[in-house]
Structure formats: C-alpha cells, structure tokens
Design a protein around this nucleic acid. Sequence first.
DNA 1: CTTGACCTTCCACCTGCTGGAAGCACCATT
DNA 2: AATGGTGCTTCCAGCAGGTGGAAGGTCAAG
Lengths: 131, 131
Amino acid sequence: MNIGEVAERAGLPPKTIRYYEDIGLIRPLRSDNGYRAFQKNDLHKLAFLGRARALGFSIEDCRTLLALYDDSTRESAQVKQIAEEHLHQIDEKIAQLKSMRNTLAHLVEACHGDHRPDCPILKDLSNANVD
Amino acid sequence: MNIGEVAERAGLPPKTIRYYEDIGLIRPLRSDNGYRAFQKNDLHKLAFLGRARALGFSIEDCRTLLALYDDSTRESAQVKQIAEEHLHQIDEKIAQLKSMRNTLAHLVEACHGDHRPDCPILKDLSNANVD
DNA sequence: CTTGACCTTCCACCTGCTGGAAGCACCATT
DNA sequence: AATGGTGCTTCCAGCAGGTGGAAGGTCAAG
C-alpha cells in the first residue's frame, strides 16, 4: 500500500503519517522506487494512533501504548495506569474550562451588547489588582 | 517601572511581557539606558492581557479586545460578540473532552489492570475499521 | 510522449510562550 | 576605583503536533 491508500483507510493525512515515521512511531518498508510500502501491521498501528490521539493521548503516551500493544507479555496494569493518568488530566482540563466558562458566561450576560461603549466585560478584564 | 516590577505586579513573566511587545500588544517607552520604561497604562494593559488569557481568549482576540479597551467610542456589542464566540468555543471544547472522558472511563473500568496481558483498552484502540 | 496524479524530501510556519547564551547597566561594598 | 551580584538587553533555539508549499522523481492512461 502507498501512503495515499493508507491515509484514506487509517483516516489520517499523509503528512501526519510521514511525521509519525519521522518521530519513530512507525517504520514502514520502502519499495524500489523509494515509496513507502505499508504493510497491514502499519495500517493497524496508524489506526491505533488515530484512535489514541482522538482520545487525547499525547504522542509520548501513544509511543508507550504502541510498545505495549506490540508486546504480548505486557501487563494490563501498565496500560490502565497510563489511561487513568490521562483520564485524570482530562478531568482537570474540563474543570478548568468549566471555571472559565462560568466567569465568561456571567460577563456576557451582564453586557447589554448594544451601540453604547459601556461594557462590563472590558471593565472586569481591566479590574485586576495592580496598583 | 522596569520589567521586573511590572512582571511582579501584572503577574506575568518578563519573557512573556517581552514577547507581548514583540508581537505588538504593548509599546512601552525606553529609558536612555535601553531599558523598557513601563507606564501605568502599560501595566493596566498587561494585567488586562493576563486576565483575558486566563479566560482562554486567543492572542488575536486579546489584540482586538485591547483595541476596544483603548477605544472610548467602541460599541459593547463588538466586545460581547467576541466573548460569545469564545464562550461557544469553550462549550465545544468541553463537550469534546466530556466525550473523550466518557469513552476512556468505560475502557479504564473494563480493564482489570493486573499482571495479565489481556487489555480491553488496547483492544478497543486497535479495533478501528480499517480492512 | 505528454499530462496529471501521486510520491519523495526539505524547510518554513502555526500558537504561545520558555530557556539559555552573550553582553551591557546599575547599585552596594570594599 | 574596582568588584560582585543582580537586572536588563538581544538573539537564537526549542516545546507539541502537526500543516503548507516548493522542487523534483514516478507511474499509469490516453
């Protein structure tokens, strides 16, 4: 398989696939013409990467997960730990965004949003304790 | 005021302040010795930027907000629109993270996390429709 | 035999900073 | 006046995780 077909099937842009090779996540063979010659295994790994990235795992997490995926003697505890840590990070991120959202929603509500210059949003933003 | 004091009072690292000058968000005067000479107004703008960034506004949004902040003839509707769009983006981000969280939480729950290699997390990640 | 789609590499750019090196400026001691 | 320590300056590089584009080789169809 050439990169175009693999990209199509894995649902990743060719550029991203080349990048993943660059950083050593995959190591596709090469044909005589210099084209990357992807095997089924590469395709599976790329799809795996696509799913893991869609779940927000970092590239380094993906690297580890892929190594575990390849290792038939792995312990599921290792995988679970990575996933749990990531879950925790997602929770933190959600909490942070919710807090932003709250503040911002109040400000938006308080702003009439008309032709007048008076604006509680700007007022709040400039009201930092700085003097 | 020198950059150190301003950094302290605005709650931003000196590096960040130099960067903000670099990209044209602020234009502090210079003393004869070449040091940046911050006025009260610069300090207020930096604090404003700090608050806006903490609410997740992009640098480009901040640029626009700062221009509106400076413009006494602004219409609050302009500010409100930016804030509403940003709010919307936050909501989307939260929804996306919640969806990730859901999927991941199910997977983590399903994984025994012991010394055996059998792992529903890896299984799910590799189960993309690819053939 | 040419056209167009596909592939290759390489380099730059994106966001929003952050770290570090090399070199002045300033202030307080000695 | 010299010295030492801190603070300031600029510039260059790098982080994540790609994306865009240029310059050029390859392949299959007409």
